[in-house]
Nucleic acid binder design. Structure first.
Lengths: 139, 139
DNA sequence: CTGGATCCTCCTAGATACTG
DNA sequence: CAGTATCTAGGAGGATCCAG
């Protein structure tokens, strides 16, 4: 039993930590917001309402599964609305809510930052990589 | 051979798609930016320079491995600088660059959005979950 | 103190196939 | 058209030990 103490302590700490994180609102949303597909979908919908398959094409690379999963979570969070039109081939439209639009502004800002500063980041990377090579050669 | 055609087509499409993504600057940065630890570290450093262990405590929940990994990638991208002071216990300080500071503004904006709109999101979630329950009961 | 290296374990994205 | 169900490989990330 004495040998279990350390492991037990760690396990308990982990559980408590998880509980702490779950209780932290910012962390909950930050996790959701830092999802790759979330930002892409929200950015895509910023241009206007879209159908499921339109999104699938516009987002490019997303599997049906991830697209559905992302859309469901965003709908749940009140970021977008899902409208089913029961025509002959079913038609489903997705549209940002007002809340979603405000979020889209942020996403676009991030996207713009990425586009604006890509050159600088790229240069920094090459400089860093060159430095690493030198360091390896010198050692 | 004819039976391979479909698989080959798919494989080729995948490779081309990968190449496309790699060539897309925005996507490259978006992946990096949507990393959980990146946003937390950048937000933490927005308050000012910090030592390695300070960051470990402030970020809370990050393992040494992930902290180092995150810091290296951010250093490589020119988001922050790493300064080693060769004293008796080594001391390493991390500080945002100008580029990093501009990014931090965005991160803080997102964080602020999350804090501001958490109630609304939370309400939307409960409404959605209640609707799901009803749907299940009715079916 | 600040990591590097290694192993190992989940988790989940994505491919595939099927349905209303 | 708009999903759902199932399976699996790969990688992210934690634990642990070691070094400068």
């Amino acid at each position: 039993m004495a040998t279990m103490t350390a492991a037990q302590k760690r396990e308990q700490a982990r559980v408590e930590y998880d509980a702490f994180l779950r209780a932290c609102p910012t962390n909950q949303l930050l996790d959701r917001l830092s999802d790759k597909w979330v930002s892409l979908v929200v950015a895509a919908l910023a241009a206007g309402p879209m159908r499921y398959s339109d999104l699938g094409r516009k987002v490019a690379g997303v599997s049906p599964k991830m697209l559905t999963q992302t859309l469901r979570s965003l709908e749940r969070d009140g970021i977008l609305t899902r409208t089913v039109t029961p025509s002959v081939p079913v038609r489903v439209d997705y549209e940002l809510t007002e809340l979603g639009s405000s979020l889209a502004q942020l996403m676009i800002a991030v996207k713009t930052w990425a586009e604006t500063n890509f050159d600088e980041v790229h240069t920094a990377r090459e400089r860093y990589d060159a430095g690493q090579e030198n360091a390896r050669a010198t050692s």
